[in-house]
Design a protein around this nucleic acid. Structure first.
Length: 730
DNA sequence: AGCACGCCGACT
DNA sequence: GTCGGCGTGCTC
């Protein structure tokens, strides 16, 4: 009887063998007995029993059910899945579970249609002139009036009672909706005349178009507002014309609708969208359509890199420096790196676009592994934002802003322009402390100060999300004299309200734009000039352009200047550059002020005087001298446990496992060290960094000793993980 | 990771 | 006398 190897979703670095009626193709899902449960796994290999030894077959269980006729993935994506398991040293079954849409992971069929609910004629009439008294029933009718909806989706919105009532009154009836539909997207015609490309854009477009038939990696290094998206649009066109599909990765920032709209308006074809907030069904629908070649363009966040494509033609990673492309738990893959790998195996061109390229990608461009395309001019002749530092030492501060800056803000506001104030700290104040003994009010499980949120009248821990009410007195000395310390966006907003009482302001941070679509609404209002003063966090630095903003103020750069994380400077420079790019247009040049206590800091000076491109090359030199990434490779073992000693001990033992090989090859250890945030949610976190200037050597050590590590008695007691090419050392 | 088996404390 | 604590061991 044939034997098949199956990758089951368990954290074990092996496959399991089963007997099967017939050989099965790799990539086919099967349901198998595993211990006392039933799991869905994926076939990785299939062969005749080499010894035809019935005794060995006795030990093997039989496959319960074969779920697919066709493999889920083609050979390329299967190879990529295998590569993921090897490169990230991750259990193959968990890798498969990560790369599959949830619905398929749970055993859902690859089908053309699913059961759905639709309105009957009576139902249509009811939707026109409501007569029902049931509020929920009317809501349901109104929803279905827009078209049929999959039963499993409607069940999450309405109770069975409601649905049954409607069906009994013959207002609704069972039907089905198609998950795939033929779309003749390759015969599209442009819906808009493309704008004439600038000289630089033209060069970039020509360079890409000339090499569009095979793998060439491009770094599209273009300042904000230089029209990178227009380059994407123009190089995509010939690819689509050939009937080839384009996969576009974008960061996780809730702005996907805007990008999608732009592509749809240009080509007049529907664009497949994949992001984390979609239902399982909607996601698998796009997945299947892409797999059948029914979509020409697929735009998605990190995990979209696993979308199967029938005729791949190009892969684009927009804002390639963005850290949201790195998964931070489970299989810690980097979607940008994977995009390079995938484009290579699919033999299609790859475009990495950014105004502030990661040092990794920039290095690849400088040493000619990537073709470097530069866009240095802003479209429409907009000038570059002027960067300046403001020395805040010995200056009186109001709401955390130096007097000098307030005057500058006032003059911009008086001219009717918008001003953006950036502060990367939400809440009212980052700490509450006792005026008497100096003790801060800390989160017990993280040992970090609580952030005070005045609007809720509560304290919130930004590390674990814990929340409690504001205490009456100090827990140490029982003094009632508690006061807040430091400034967050909430307080900044309040202070600015006092400084500029007649100016309309809006706050953009994750507290203020919590609801769905709220961010987009606010951003639209900003550009409609409903507000003049914009206060906010990170969110403001991502992807949105504010043409009426002429002044950007950054209040807290000092923290990052002296960080333990060697990437902090790179991140700050990217943030500042991205923020600077938000402002200004042709008729209104922008300026940007960085408020700092370290005006002479070399990083700030370099950025201000020479710009990001120069800063980045400088930073690369420093990385080279320090033998840091991208001039060396890193892997981090992390451990967390209720007792600090346990986590640190495990890492020490892991270090001992690796010591002989690492020392022999002149690799390095850093740690075990407590993580920057040592305690989170009541668990102590430690890390051990392994580093080598030879990537291959590092991977070979990891491979050879991982079994030893797994066999350590502590390894089953302490939660640990391995992070390859880490980007966040916290 | 699950999910069992297994061997010691406070309870209807 | 049992219910249940989580230690340890296995999963084709």
């Amino acid at each position: 009887m044939p034997i098949i190897d199956v990758a089951v979703p368990v954290p074990l670095r092996q496959t399991f063998s089963y007997t099967s009626e017939q050989k099965l193709r790799p990539g086919v899902r099967v349901s198998v007995p595993f211990g006392r449960r039933q799991l869905i796994g994926v076939v990785t290999a299939s062969y005749d029993d080499p010894v035809d030894d019935t005794e060995s077959e006795v030990k093997l269980k039989a496959v319960t059910e074969v779920l697919d006729e066709q493999p889920l993935f083609d050979a390329t994506l299967q190879a990529l899945t295998q590569w993921l398991a090897t490169y990230y040293h991750h259990p193959i079954g968990e890798v498969w579970a990560t790369v599959m849409p949830t619905r398929l992971r749970k055993g859902g069929a690859l089908s053309d249609s699913v059961p759905a609910l639709t309105l009957t004629e009576a139902g249509q009439a009811e939707a026109q002139t409501p007569t029902l008294r049931g509020k929920k029933q009317l809501e349901c009718i109104a929803l279905l009036a827009q078209g049929p909806l999959a039963s499993e989706e409607i069940k999450t919105k309405f109770s069975n009672v409601v649905l049954k009532a409607l069906e009994e009154k013959a207002l609704t009836t069972q039907t089905s909706i198609r998950l795939t539909e033929k779309q003749d997207w390759a015969s599209f015609s442009l819906q808009q005349t493309p704008p004439t490309a600038s000289t630089e854009q033209g060069v970039a477009i020509a360079a890409i178009n000339q090499q569009a038939s095979h793998f060439v990696p491009f770094l599209l290094d273009g300042v904000t507002g230089s029209g990178k998206t227009e380059v994407y649009l123009q190089v995509i066109e010939p690819v689509l014309k050939q009937g080839r599909q384009v996969l576009i990765l974008v960061p996780e920032i809730g702005l996907t609708p805007q990008t999608v709209g732009r592509f749809e308006r240009r080509f007049g074809i529907s664009v497949g969208v994949l992001h984390s907030q979609m239902t399982d069904l909607a996601r698998v629908k796009v997945w299947q359509q892409a797999r059948r070649g029914e979509l020409g363009i697929i735009i998605g966040t990190r995990s979209a890199i696993f979308t199967p494509l029938k005729r791949p033609g190009m892969i684009i990673v927009d804002e390639e420096h963005d850290e949201s492309f790195k998964q931070q738990d489970g299989l810690r893959y980097h979607a940008r790196d994977l995009a390079v790998k995938r484009a290579h195996t699919e033999n299609v061109p790859l475009i990495l676009g950014s105004a502030t390229p990661s040092l990794e990608s920039l290095n690849n461009a400088l040493n000619k592994r990537y073709t470097h395309l530069t866009l240095s001019q802003r479209a429409g002749g907009a000038s570059h934002t002027q960067l300046k530092v403001l020395d805040s030492r010995d200056q009186p501060l109001h709401a955390g802003i130096a007097q000098g800056l307030i005057s500058i803000m006032r003059s911009h506001l008086q001219q009717g322009n918008q001003v953006l104030v950036f502060l990367n700290r939400r809440g009212f104040a980052p700490a509450v402390l006792c005026h008497h003994c100096g003790q801060t009010v800390d989160c017990k499980s993280c040992e970090r100060p609580f952030t005070y949120h005045k609007s809720q009248g509560r304290l919130q821990c930004h590390h674990c999300g814990a929340s409690r009410r504001m205490p009456e007195q100090c827990s140490e000395c029982h003094s009632h004299d508690l006061q807040t310390s430091g400034i967050g966006t909430e307080q900044l907003e309040q202070g600015l309200g006092q400084l500029f009482p007649d100016i309309k302001q809006v706050r953009i941070d994750s507290d203020a734009v919590k609801g769905k679509d709220k961010l987009i609404t606010r951003l639209d209002e900003i550009n409609a000039r409903k507000y003049q003063l914009l206060v906010g966090t990170q969110i403001l630095s991502k992807g949105h352009h504010f043409p009426h903003v002429t002044l950007v103020v950054v209040l807290d750069c000092d923290g990052a200047l002296f960080s333990a994380d060697f990437r902090a400077a790179e991140k700050l420079a990217q943030l500042i550059t991205q923020l600077a790019g938000r402002a200004g247009r042709a008729s209104k040049p922008g300026e940007m002020w960085l408020q700092t206590d370290n005006p002479g800091h070399p990083l700030l000076q370099d950025l201000i005087n020479n710009g990001f491109a120069h800063f980045a090359r400088q930073a690369l030199q420093e990385r080279k001298l320090g033998a840091l990434p991208p001039y060396s490779s890193q892997a981090i073992f992390r451990a967390e446990a209720g007792e600090a000693g346990l986590a640190a001990n495990l890492l020490q033992q892991i270090r001992d496992c690796y010591r002989p090989s690492v020392n022999a090859a002149k690799g390095q250890f850093i740690g075990p060290l407590p993580c920057l945030i040592e305690k989170r949610q009541g668990r102590f976190r430690y890390m051990l960094v392994l580093q080598s200037q030879q990537r291959a050597a590092l991977h070979s050590w990891l491979k050879h000793h991982l079994q030893e590590v797994e066999a350590l008695p502590l390894a089953s007691k302490v939660r640990w993980s391995l992070d390859i090419d880490p980007v966040d050392l916290s």
